[in-house]
Design a protein around this nucleic acid. Structure first.
Lengths: 238, 238
DNA sequence: AAATTAATGTGTCGTAAGTACATATTATGT
DNA sequence: ACATAATATGTACTTACGACACATTAATTT
């Protein structure tokens, strides 16, 4: 190392080391919801930390200096699911001092809704699996809290905004839609009242098609009106 | 510099520099709302950055390695207003790459509601002033966006949760309360319907007292029921 | 081809909340 | 005593919500 290099590095070092504030890392964690078998699922991975061996955790990563928070979330999503245009919404930032055993890491949580049937991915590798939300008892880090917070947000959203549709394929029957709502809210709904409520929102387009391959009377098929289709959600400017 | 010192510093430098992720700083910004003269106000300070000379900014600070996000927000609040037990709620985290001219800073925004009359503070020092929300055109950084986001959250909240009361003194008349709502929502409300709606919530306790020192018929005084008094808001384990 | 099955599709009634709107009441000031 | 300027309150209409029952249809079985 030349003297010049040394001086440069030393200067940089001084600058960095007195900025204690940079000793906090920031990550994003994605609560990726899916829907299958009338159950709400979430995508989890086996934790790679010793402290949490045997436990699952959400999908996340450190935010890189050259990407904004949403880019980081979309990167995590694309890396893990291979899907690009998905619904994603920021929920909350968790910053307890001791939330990460390896150091100070503040994390911003996003929730995401994806159509699980479009997701025939590298699932069998690397311990990545869909878990029924109702069956999850314990997660690594504070990820159970993050999951609960995101689930609450999702529940608050679905009656106000047409987001639940992101869990379904493009065409669906009202029965399927109701089952999605029941899975998310974890309650039974009255069919007639549910249909009235949905009709009132005017979110749906009647496709004049019917379900097929059923062993009973098929229902009509609907699609979410184009104007409500959310791929990438409006950015709050990052 | 001895060889030993050099080696130490170099080692530390290597360690830090390969941890690019720590090159992001994290801050909190507080949108501190107050209410005065039938107007919703927000506490702003003159920006100390050259790039924003002449502009005002929200109150914020870098998060210290040994404090969590909420502690940092309360610290900012206490430092600037001298008030301890205030309503504070996390709203959103803003992480655009270029949002801070001096470097990469991700900020978590909180909004806070305080009783402005309990706040006879060091206002005249250091360019700290209350500004009418409606008059604010431009702020430093992305603080206008943060303000708008927090204002929207506040507006969404006040009909659902008894938070607007934090802007008023302990005892207030229904007229005063309505004026607070009108200031926040920036609309006129019908007096009879407003009272019906508030009565329905069952938030208020009739104090059997009257307003005084008015030049007209005084109204009854009410207080928020104890069970709803929010000093420090429930932590999301933040 | 007729009957059965298992689901879809729809309507009513009572209740609760939202909105528009007008009159009586009361403490104060003259 | 009277005028004033605000408080306090009620009704009618409309809209949403929740509980609830029956007719219809396509597929399947007999």
């Amino acid at each position: 190392m030349t003297e010049k290099e040394l001086n440069l590095k030393t200067a940089a070092l001084e600058k960095i080391s007195h900025l204690d504030y940079f000793n906090i890392a920031i990550s994003v964690d994605c609560v990726i919801f899916g829907y299958e078998n009338k159950e709400l699922k979430v995508l989890l991975i086996k934790s790679d930390l010793e402290e949490f061996s045997g436990l699952y955790s959400l999908l996340g990563d450190l935010v890189r200096p050259d990407e904004d928070l949403e880019s980081a979330s979309y990167r995590v999503l694309a890396d893990r699911t291979g899907m690009e245009d998905v619904y994603l919404e920021q929920v909350h930032t968790f910053g307890s001092i001791a939330r990460h055993p390896s150091g100070r890491v503040i994390t911003t949580a996003y929730y995401s809704l994806i159509d699980i049937t479009h997701h025939k991915l590298q699932l069998n590798h690397n311990d990545l699996h869909w878990h029924s939300v109702n069956d999850i008892k314990k997660l690594a880090f504070d990820h159970k809290l993050i999951l609960n917070t995101c689930l609450k947000r999702l529940r608050d959203q679905i009656m106000e905004n047409p987001v639940a549709f992101n869990l379904l394929q493009d065409k669906f029957s009202l029965r399927e839609l109701q089952e999605v709502y029941e899975a998310i809210l974890d309650i039974k709904l009255d069919r007639r009242n549910f249909r009235k409520k949905i009709a009132l929102k005017d979110w749906l387009q009647d496709l004049n098609e019917m379900e097929t391959n059923l062993s009973h009377r098929p229902g009509k098929l609907y699609a979410l009106k184009k104007q409500y289709k959310t791929s990438r959600v409006r950015s709050m400017a990052g």
